[in-house]
Nucleic acid binder design. Structure first.
Lengths: 212, 212
DNA sequence: TGTACATCAGTGAACGCGCGTTCACTGATGTAC
DNA sequence: TGTACATCAGTGAACGCGCGTTCACTGATGTAC
């Protein structure tokens, strides 16, 4: 399709862009970052992609569609990050790696992460909403199954409760890293993502195995 | 000051309000709730308080000032919730109660909670910012000290790390309750706040005592 | 290879809207004497 | 108790702005023959 390998350099007005969809998604990330996690204006995103305000409508269902697409992208990247851990055969190792990967993913894609959880997937609207819900739930279920394997013989309710605690720990730790909270609370300033990731991994195993 | 006990019923235009400051803070909470956690427009808040768009400027430094005041209110309520736990003499009981109270506080004031952590206290601006940072840090330090008492003889860095994990767990659990995430992830639907609060309390003690 | 044509993916002007903030004003309140 | 006056806390109109979205348009691309 696109013949313009060098992005839009030398592109004449009216010419096709090449991969505007991708470019808009990337521009959205930059704008989200710039506005400290808040949803940017569609016009600002278009501006950043060097495109007119109407152009995004050929690729997304308005602003909500764009933001939903960003979130979906994020959840798919998260699933990818979990995939590797899923293959591990030892339950403890599997859960520990999966939770640590969760932290690493969020640290690597902080802007995606913030948008993914800026609002509950349940309250998204539009045609992407169904896909969003599905892919979000899938990543939680991956964790829940890993918890179940470690927990052993406990009720389903207890598994859900432990998975909730484990996910809460990972999510909370990630939020501290991803927003400026770490700095604000004078904690862990010098600690690296990797240290936090490993701690979270171990803590999740602890919670899954012993319960609380 | 205010002679208008029945809010603004029967109040003539131009008359003083009584306690518009308080009324605006309450209106802000309602509007935040209505917009799913996002910062509402100052005009919408004024509208809800049955007051002209310019009125809030007699009480807050613009929109940012209002939102900062909401956050400060929240942190002060949180400190109040922690105070009771602080008096407990047994370290384990103190930490467990404090963390559980944290969850109870957030469940009781979900809108406050969301605004408190919608953006890092560090990025707030305006004259309330300093107060905000101080009161936010104070509530974290309360937790950190409770963790230290349970942890016993470990390095300061280790205390901070364990406090970080404990706070992450509580914060993550609370976020799940406060946003629609609980429902979206099909988890804990039937569980009550109290159950989660107690679980979080026990988990925090576990983390503080054994580390990860 | 050339031509006619449908489709695609842009443009840019325009729309109405609600926003944050300012400002001159005004009526009610509190105070001094 | 009455009066003069300063201050307080509202009003409502106005400002300029950026927003999301629509729309007629147009040039480039891909396809059929």
């Amino acid at each position: 399709m696109g013949q313009h390998d060098k992005k839009d350099e030398g592109r004449l007005p009216g010419q096709h862009h090449g991969d505007l969809r991708r470019a808009l998604l990337e521009a959205a990330l930059v704008e989200i970052e710039a506005s400290d996690g808040a949803a940017p204006s569609l016009r600002a995103v278009a501006r950043r992609a060097n495109v007119s305000p109407g152009a995004p409508y050929h690729h997304f269902k308005g602003k909500d569609g764009l933001m939903a697409a960003v979130a979906v992208d994020g959840f798919e990247a998260l699933r990818q990050a979990q995939r590797e851990a899923l293959a591990l055969s030892k339950p403890e190792e599997r859960l520990e790696t999966m939770s640590a990967q969760y932290v690493r993913f969020a640290a690597a894609h902080p802007t995606h992460y913030r948008i993914m959880f800026a609002q509950s997937p349940a309250t998204h609207s539009g045609d992407q909403a169904g896909h969003l819900r599905q892919v979000a739930m899938e990543s939680f279920l991956n964790l829940a199954m890993a918890v179940a394997a470690v927990a052993g013989k406990v009720s389903e309710a207890e598994v859900r409760a432990r998975a909730h605690m484990a996910w809460s720990l990972a999510h909370g730790a990630v939020m501290t890293l991803v927003t400026g909270l770490t700095q604000a609370l004078l904690v862990e300033e010098a600690e690296h993502v990797e240290v936090v990731a490993r701690r979270v991994g171990r803590a999740c195993v602890l919670i899954a195995r012993h319960g609380v």
